[in-house]
Design a protein around this nucleic acid. Structure first.
Lengths: 77, 77
DNA sequence: CCACATTTGTCCGTATGTATC
DNA sequence: AGATACATACGGACAAATGTG
């Protein structure tokens, strides 16, 4: 027992909470893969896996060469 | 045009279609990672990534040591 | 227009842990 | 005790898009 939460789940939940709390607003840019990996003390691969899920859930949108942005803005579709 | 679909997306969509078509019924066991990787001609890592998304969407449920099963059965929650 | 750095996106292989049989 | 199978984590490699000089 004492189920340890997986790292990528923690990243997903933390960012999700920040969005729902309004700390990250629609259209706003998230940190890069490398920065998130550094902040959460995980590898870039793990940070990518977390963002992949957030993309799949429609919470964020990634744009190659630019960055990852919070979805929900009227300008994003 | 000619949008090249990512391998893991193709796996996700194929399995999703099979479930929605009733080809894979709730409670039924899916092939193993290795078998799926072989069928779709992708690596095990890619097959895992696809199943991770299907789990995240609640379409399937994984059980360590047993296998991955189609969700929606009254016995699965 | 071209070269370069940055950043996201995808894919692969491997290692380790945990649960089941 | 050993084999099988899912779950997580890491690192490396390459492509594609963007922005800058």
């Amino acid at each position: 027992m004492a189920n340890r939460t997986a790292d990528y789940v923690r990243v997903v939940e933390t960012i999700t909470a920040q969005i729902r709390a309004g700390e990250l607003k629609p259209g706003e840019k998230l940190p890069t893969y490398a920065q998130l990996a550094d902040q959460f003390d995980v590898s870039v691969s793990t940070a990518q896996a977390a963002l992949r899920i957030l993309r799949d859930r429609g919470l964020v949108e990634g744009h190659q060469g630019k960055g990852t942005y919070v979805a929900g803005s009227p300008e994003t579709p």
